[in-house]
Simulated assay, not measured.
Amino acid sequence: MNINRGPLLVFSGQSNRPLAEEICQHLGISLGKSETIKFTNDNLIVQYEESLREGDVFIVQSFSTPVSDAIMELLLMIDAAKSASAGRVTAVIPYYSYARSDKKDAPRISIAGRLVADLLQSAGADRVLTMTLHSPQVHGFFKVPVDHLSSDLVIANHLRTTVPDAEEGVVLAPDSGSIKRASSIARRLNCGLAFIDKQRLTDTQVESRALIGDVKGKKVYIIDDEISTAGSLVEAVNFAKRMGAEEVYVAVTHGVYTGPAIERIAALDAVQVASSNTVLVPQSKIDGSGGKLHVLSVAELFANAISNIHTGESVSTLFE
Protein backbone atom coordinates (compact mmCIF):
# COMPACT_ATOMS: atom_id res chain seq x y z
CA MET A 1 0.00 0.00 0.00
CA ASN A 2 1.28 3.43 -0.93
CA ILE A 3 -0.24 6.51 0.69
CA ASN A 4 0.09 10.00 -0.75
CA ARG A 5 1.11 12.29 2.08
CA GLY A 6 2.73 15.69 2.25
CA PRO A 7 6.51 16.02 1.92
CA LEU A 8 8.72 13.94 4.20
CA LEU A 9 10.44 16.28 6.69
CA VAL A 10 12.93 15.19 9.37
CA PHE A 11 14.06 17.48 12.18
CA SER A 12 16.27 16.96 15.19
CA GLY A 13 16.45 18.15 18.76
CA GLN A 14 19.82 18.69 20.39
CA SER A 15 20.25 15.32 22.11
CA ASN A 16 21.47 13.23 19.16
CA ARG A 17 21.84 15.33 16.02
CA PRO A 18 24.52 13.03 14.45
CA LEU A 19 22.02 10.14 14.40
CA ALA A 20 19.36 12.38 12.78
CA GLU A 21 21.84 13.49 10.13
CA GLU A 22 22.80 9.88 9.38
CA ILE A 23 19.12 8.91 9.11
CA CYS A 24 18.62 11.69 6.57
CA GLN A 25 21.63 10.48 4.55
CA HIS A 26 19.97 7.06 4.21
CA LEU A 27 16.68 8.72 3.26
CA GLY A 28 18.39 10.92 0.67
CA ILE A 29 17.03 14.16 2.14
CA SER A 30 18.46 17.11 4.06
CA LEU A 31 17.89 17.47 7.79
CA GLY A 32 15.25 20.13 8.40
CA LYS A 33 16.26 23.50 9.82
CA SER A 34 15.15 24.55 13.29
CA GLU A 35 16.61 26.54 16.15
CA THR A 36 16.42 25.95 19.90
CA ILE A 37 17.43 28.76 22.24
CA LYS A 38 17.80 28.53 26.02
CA PHE A 39 17.23 31.77 27.90
CA THR A 40 19.12 32.77 31.05
CA ASN A 41 16.15 31.58 33.14
CA ASP A 42 16.48 28.07 31.58
CA ASN A 43 13.35 28.47 29.46
CA LEU A 44 13.53 27.03 25.94
CA ILE A 45 12.13 28.39 22.70
CA VAL A 46 11.95 26.39 19.46
CA GLN A 47 11.45 27.84 15.99
CA TYR A 48 11.30 26.08 12.62
CA GLU A 49 13.10 27.87 9.81
CA GLU A 50 11.13 26.37 6.93
CA SER A 51 7.51 25.61 6.05
CA LEU A 52 5.91 22.52 7.59
CA ARG A 53 2.45 22.99 6.07
CA GLU A 54 0.83 19.58 5.38
CA GLY A 55 4.23 17.94 5.81
CA ASP A 56 4.82 14.45 7.24
CA VAL A 57 7.11 15.55 10.07
CA PHE A 58 9.48 13.27 12.01
CA ILE A 59 11.31 14.74 15.04
CA VAL A 60 14.36 12.81 16.30
CA GLN A 61 15.14 13.19 20.00
CA SER A 62 16.67 10.73 22.48
CA PHE A 63 15.93 11.09 26.18
CA SER A 64 19.57 11.35 27.21
CA THR A 65 21.39 13.73 29.55
CA PRO A 66 20.08 16.31 30.32
CA VAL A 67 16.87 14.26 30.09
CA SER A 68 14.44 16.95 31.27
CA ASP A 69 15.75 19.41 28.67
CA ALA A 70 15.46 16.75 25.96
CA ILE A 71 11.84 15.99 26.85
CA MET A 72 10.86 19.66 27.08
CA GLU A 73 12.53 20.45 23.77
CA LEU A 74 10.69 17.59 22.07
CA LEU A 75 7.34 18.73 23.50
CA LEU A 76 7.96 22.26 22.21
CA MET A 77 9.00 20.96 18.79
CA ILE A 78 5.85 18.83 18.51
CA ASP A 79 3.62 21.72 19.59
CA ALA A 80 5.32 24.16 17.22
CA ALA A 81 4.98 21.70 14.33
CA LYS A 82 1.25 21.26 14.95
CA SER A 83 0.85 25.04 15.18
CA ALA A 84 2.67 25.35 11.85
CA SER A 85 0.00 23.15 10.20
CA ALA A 86 2.07 19.97 9.86
CA GLY A 87 -0.04 17.18 8.38
CA ARG A 88 1.27 14.55 10.82
CA VAL A 89 3.92 14.61 13.54
CA THR A 90 5.85 11.51 14.57
CA ALA A 91 8.10 11.63 17.65
CA VAL A 92 11.20 9.53 16.90
CA ILE A 93 12.62 8.61 20.32
CA PRO A 94 15.54 6.19 19.85
CA TYR A 95 16.07 6.00 23.63
CA TYR A 96 12.99 6.38 25.86
CA SER A 97 14.72 6.48 29.24
CA TYR A 98 11.53 6.69 31.32
CA ALA A 99 10.56 3.22 30.10
CA ARG A 100 12.26 2.02 33.30
CA SER A 101 9.48 3.69 35.30
CA ASP A 102 6.76 1.29 34.17
CA LYS A 103 5.06 0.24 37.41
CA LYS A 104 4.33 1.37 40.95
CA ASP A 105 6.94 -0.69 42.80
CA ALA A 106 7.14 1.66 45.79
CA PRO A 107 4.52 3.71 47.65
CA ARG A 108 3.73 7.31 46.64
CA ILE A 109 5.66 7.39 43.35
CA SER A 110 4.70 8.31 39.80
CA ILE A 111 4.63 5.87 36.90
CA ALA A 112 6.71 8.31 34.87
CA GLY A 113 6.75 6.18 31.71
CA ARG A 114 2.99 6.68 31.38
CA LEU A 115 3.14 10.36 32.37
CA VAL A 116 5.69 11.20 29.66
CA ALA A 117 3.57 9.28 27.12
CA ASP A 118 0.59 11.45 28.12
CA LEU A 119 2.67 14.61 27.71
CA LEU A 120 3.77 13.63 24.20
CA GLN A 121 0.19 13.00 23.17
CA SER A 122 -1.02 16.25 24.77
CA ALA A 123 1.66 18.14 22.84
CA GLY A 124 0.20 16.73 19.61
CA ALA A 125 2.27 13.68 18.64
CA ASP A 126 0.28 11.57 16.17
CA ARG A 127 2.68 8.63 16.28
CA VAL A 128 5.79 7.42 18.13
CA LEU A 129 8.80 5.53 16.76
CA THR A 130 11.19 4.11 19.35
CA MET A 131 13.67 1.26 19.95
CA THR A 132 14.07 -1.45 22.60
CA LEU A 133 11.87 -0.24 25.43
CA HIS A 134 13.12 -1.49 28.80
CA SER A 135 9.67 -2.93 29.45
CA PRO A 136 7.39 -3.91 26.54
CA GLN A 137 4.29 -2.89 28.52
CA VAL A 138 5.32 0.78 28.14
CA HIS A 139 4.03 0.40 24.58
CA GLY A 140 0.55 0.25 26.12
CA PHE A 141 0.93 3.65 27.82
CA PHE A 142 0.36 5.35 24.45
CA LYS A 143 -3.02 5.97 22.87
CA VAL A 144 -1.39 6.76 19.52
CA PRO A 145 0.31 4.20 17.21
CA VAL A 146 3.76 3.12 18.40
CA ASP A 147 6.36 1.42 16.20
CA HIS A 148 8.79 -0.43 18.47
CA LEU A 149 12.04 -1.23 16.66
CA SER A 150 14.58 -3.83 17.77
CA SER A 151 18.36 -3.70 17.47
CA ASP A 152 18.64 -7.51 17.46
CA LEU A 153 19.51 -7.69 13.77
CA VAL A 154 22.23 -5.04 14.09
CA ILE A 155 23.74 -6.70 17.17
CA ALA A 156 23.63 -10.19 15.62
CA ASN A 157 25.30 -8.95 12.44
CA HIS A 158 28.00 -7.22 14.50
CA LEU A 159 28.81 -10.39 16.44
CA ARG A 160 28.70 -12.55 13.32
CA THR A 161 31.17 -10.32 11.45
CA THR A 162 33.59 -9.53 14.31
CA VAL A 163 33.78 -12.75 16.32
CA PRO A 164 35.49 -15.73 14.64
CA ASP A 165 33.22 -18.81 14.60
CA ALA A 166 30.49 -16.82 16.35
CA GLU A 167 28.01 -19.69 16.00
CA GLU A 168 30.07 -21.75 18.44
CA GLY A 169 29.46 -19.28 21.26
CA VAL A 170 26.64 -18.84 23.78
CA VAL A 171 24.32 -15.88 24.19
CA LEU A 172 23.95 -15.10 27.90
CA ALA A 173 20.99 -13.18 29.32
CA PRO A 174 22.09 -11.38 32.52
CA ASP A 175 18.64 -11.95 34.10
CA SER A 176 15.34 -13.64 33.34
CA GLY A 177 13.88 -10.41 31.93
CA SER A 178 16.43 -10.44 29.11
CA ILE A 179 15.80 -14.01 27.95
CA LYS A 180 13.48 -13.11 25.06
CA ARG A 181 15.97 -10.63 23.62
CA ALA A 182 18.89 -13.03 24.09
CA SER A 183 16.92 -15.88 22.52
CA SER A 184 16.22 -13.78 19.41
CA ILE A 185 19.92 -13.10 18.89
CA ALA A 186 20.86 -16.74 19.62
CA ARG A 187 18.48 -17.85 16.85
CA ARG A 188 20.02 -15.35 14.42
CA LEU A 189 23.52 -16.59 15.27
CA ASN A 190 22.42 -20.23 15.43
CA CYS A 191 24.26 -20.63 18.73
CA GLY A 192 23.57 -21.66 22.32
CA LEU A 193 21.58 -19.80 24.99
CA ALA A 194 22.02 -19.41 28.76
CA PHE A 195 20.82 -17.08 31.50
CA ILE A 196 21.76 -16.00 35.00
CA ASP A 197 19.29 -16.62 37.80
CA LYS A 198 19.42 -13.73 40.25
CA GLN A 199 18.20 -13.32 43.80
CA ARG A 200 17.29 -9.86 45.16
CA LEU A 201 18.81 -9.38 48.62
CA THR A 202 17.79 -5.76 49.23
CA ASP A 203 16.24 -2.93 47.21
CA THR A 204 19.68 -2.08 45.81
CA GLN A 205 21.56 -5.40 45.98
CA VAL A 206 21.12 -8.37 43.66
CA GLU A 207 23.13 -11.62 43.81
CA SER A 208 23.80 -13.97 40.89
CA ARG A 209 22.67 -17.33 42.24
CA ALA A 210 22.95 -19.84 39.41
CA LEU A 211 23.74 -20.21 35.72
CA ILE A 212 21.16 -21.98 33.57
CA GLY A 213 23.09 -23.35 30.60
CA ASP A 214 26.73 -24.10 29.80
CA VAL A 215 29.40 -21.47 29.09
CA LYS A 216 32.54 -23.37 30.09
CA GLY A 217 35.32 -22.98 27.53
CA LYS A 218 33.08 -20.99 25.19
CA LYS A 219 32.78 -17.48 23.84
CA VAL A 220 29.96 -15.74 25.67
CA TYR A 221 27.83 -12.86 24.36
CA ILE A 222 26.09 -10.92 27.13
CA ILE A 223 23.02 -9.18 25.71
CA ASP A 224 20.96 -6.51 27.48
CA ASP A 225 18.86 -3.43 26.73
CA GLU A 226 21.18 -0.79 28.20
CA ILE A 227 24.26 0.00 30.24
CA SER A 228 24.04 2.85 32.72
CA THR A 229 26.61 2.73 35.53
CA ALA A 230 27.80 -0.75 34.39
CA GLY A 231 27.45 -2.21 37.90
CA SER A 232 25.20 -5.08 36.76
CA LEU A 233 27.44 -5.61 33.74
CA VAL A 234 30.54 -6.08 35.89
CA GLU A 235 28.68 -8.65 37.97
CA ALA A 236 27.47 -10.55 34.89
CA VAL A 237 30.90 -10.62 33.22
CA ASN A 238 32.68 -11.72 36.40
CA PHE A 239 30.06 -14.45 36.98
CA ALA A 240 30.45 -15.72 33.41
CA LYS A 241 34.23 -15.89 33.82
CA ARG A 242 33.87 -17.76 37.13
CA MET A 243 31.65 -20.25 35.32
CA GLY A 244 34.48 -20.92 32.86
CA ALA A 245 33.74 -18.60 29.91
CA GLU A 246 36.73 -18.36 27.57
CA GLU A 247 35.98 -14.88 26.21
CA VAL A 248 33.18 -12.43 26.95
CA TYR A 249 31.62 -9.99 24.49
CA VAL A 250 28.93 -7.49 25.51
CA ALA A 251 26.29 -5.95 23.25
CA VAL A 252 23.43 -3.68 24.29
CA THR A 253 21.05 -1.32 22.53
CA HIS A 254 21.49 1.81 24.64
CA GLY A 255 24.95 2.87 25.82
CA VAL A 256 24.11 5.49 28.43
CA TYR A 257 27.43 5.17 30.33
CA THR A 258 26.85 7.32 33.40
CA GLY A 259 28.90 7.76 36.58
CA PRO A 260 31.77 5.25 36.86
CA ALA A 261 30.70 3.24 33.77
CA ILE A 262 33.71 4.04 31.58
CA GLU A 263 36.24 3.25 34.32
CA ARG A 264 34.45 -0.03 35.06
CA ILE A 265 34.38 -1.01 31.38
CA ALA A 266 38.08 -0.21 30.97
CA ALA A 267 38.86 -2.61 33.83
CA LEU A 268 36.38 -5.24 32.67
CA ASP A 269 37.55 -8.74 31.74
CA ALA A 270 35.72 -8.56 28.40
CA VAL A 271 36.96 -8.35 24.81
CA GLN A 272 34.57 -5.55 23.81
CA VAL A 273 31.43 -3.70 24.80
CA ALA A 274 29.20 -2.65 21.90
CA SER A 275 26.14 -0.41 21.95
CA SER A 276 24.11 1.32 19.27
CA ASN A 277 24.03 5.06 18.59
CA THR A 278 20.55 5.59 20.03
CA VAL A 279 22.44 7.61 22.64
CA LEU A 280 25.28 9.86 21.52
CA VAL A 281 28.56 8.44 22.88
CA PRO A 282 31.28 11.13 22.98
CA GLN A 283 34.68 10.23 21.58
CA SER A 284 36.18 10.94 25.01
CA LYS A 285 34.24 8.00 26.49
CA ILE A 286 35.31 5.70 23.66
CA ASP A 287 38.96 6.71 24.20
CA GLY A 288 38.63 6.29 27.97
CA SER A 289 37.41 2.70 27.68
CA GLY A 290 40.79 1.37 26.66
CA GLY A 291 39.54 0.53 23.18
CA LYS A 292 36.71 -1.69 24.43
CA LEU A 293 33.75 0.51 23.47
CA HIS A 294 32.24 0.04 20.01
CA VAL A 295 29.31 2.01 18.60
CA LEU A 296 26.93 0.33 16.13
CA SER A 297 24.73 2.40 13.84
CA VAL A 298 20.96 1.89 13.76
CA ALA A 299 20.44 4.87 11.43
CA GLU A 300 19.57 2.73 8.41
CA LEU A 301 16.98 0.80 10.41
CA PHE A 302 15.34 4.05 11.57
CA ALA A 303 15.50 5.46 8.03
CA ASN A 304 13.76 2.37 6.62
CA ALA A 305 11.10 2.56 9.33
CA ILE A 306 10.49 6.27 8.64
CA SER A 307 10.25 5.56 4.91
CA ASN A 308 7.72 2.76 5.49
CA ILE A 309 5.62 4.87 7.85
CA HIS A 310 5.63 7.73 5.35
CA THR A 311 4.45 5.53 2.49
CA GLY A 312 2.02 3.49 4.59
CA GLU A 313 3.96 0.24 4.37
CA SER A 314 4.45 -2.25 7.17
CA VAL A 315 7.28 -1.64 9.61
CA SER A 316 7.28 -5.24 10.83
CA THR A 317 8.65 -6.41 7.47
CA LEU A 318 11.99 -4.85 8.45
CA PHE A 319 12.55 -7.74 10.89
CA GLU A 320 11.65 -10.62 8.60
Rank of each mutant, 00 (worst) to 15 (best):
M1F: 10
G13S: 04
L19Y: 02
C24Q: 01
S34N: 15
F39V: 08
V46D: 03
V46N: 12
E50M: 14
E54W: 10
I59N: 05
A70H: 04
L74C: 09
S83C: 12
S85L: 09
S97W: 11
A99M: 07
A106E: 14
I109E: 13
S110E: 05
V116T: 05
A123F: 08
P136Q: 06
Q137V: 14
Q137S: 11
K143V: 07
D147A: 07
L149A: 06
S150C: 10
H158Y: 15
P164N: 08
V170Y: 09
S176I: 15
G177D: 00
L189Y: 07
D197I: 13
K198E: 00
L201K: 14
L201C: 09
R209C: 07
D214R: 10
V215E: 00
D225C: 05
D225H: 06
E226R: 07
S228N: 13
A230Q: 01
A230E: 02
E235A: 13
E235I: 05
A236D: 01
V248C: 03
A251C: 15
V252S: 00
P260E: 01
I265Q: 04
A274N: 06
T278R: 10
P282I: 02
K285L: 12
I286N: 02
H294R: 15
L296K: 06
A299S: 15
A299N: 04
A303P: 10
S307E: 13
S316C: 10
